[in-house]
């Protein structure tokens, strides 16, 4: 089995994997980082979004082997020094989650939106940018509020 090495949440990891292993399988099964979820098999739901070299990607649609040497951040790596990321705080404060299953991907996407679009986001922009993340519980209302609030908080 070929070997892959990458940095996940700041730690160097490497493993021999079946070539078929997707990044999300590598994270969930090899590293037991189960915060990254799988909600579909057609790259649409966004439950599996993580950051690779600072950009949001769907970890169900990339081979682990492709990411040799990459720097991966998952939901487990977002809080720093025991302090929640402002976007995590904003999701809790605005009741932007119910069952919590889409939440890790939703938060990782939201941080990426702010990284790309800045800290002042209008409703239309947020709704459009969330195109690749499905939530079945919230009707998105509070997620939209949380992303706007989290974006502002990230400026501080």
């Amino acid at each position: 089995m070929p070997k892959v090495s990458m940095t996940v949440n700041g730690k160097a990891v490497s493993a021999n994997v079946d070539a078929r292993t997707l990044l999300v399988q590598f994270l969930r099964e090899d590293l037991r980082l189960t915060g990254t979820h799988v909600g579909c098999d057609t790259s649409q739901c966004g439950c599996c979004v993580v950051h690779v070299d600072g950009k949001a990607i769907k970890s169900c649609t990339v081979l682990a082997l492709t990411l040799e040497g990459a720097n991966v951040t998952t939901i487990e790596g977002l809080a720093q020094d025991g302090k929640l990321h402002p976007m995590q705080e904003a999701f809790r404060e605005n009741h932007a989650l119910q069952c919590g299953f889409c939440t890790p991907g939703m938060i990782m996407t939201s941080v990426d939106i702010v990284n790309r679009k800045g800290n002042t986001l209008d409703e239309q922009t947020i709704r459009h940018e969330l195109e690749g993340n499905l939530c079945r519980c919230t009707g998105y209302h509070n997620i939209v509020k949380a992303v706007a609030a989290g974006a502002e908080a990230m400026a501080k």
Partner: peptide, 9 residues
Amino acid sequence: IGDPAVRHR
């Protein structure tokens, strides 16, 4: 095309 995560790849 696609969504932001798709456009990144």
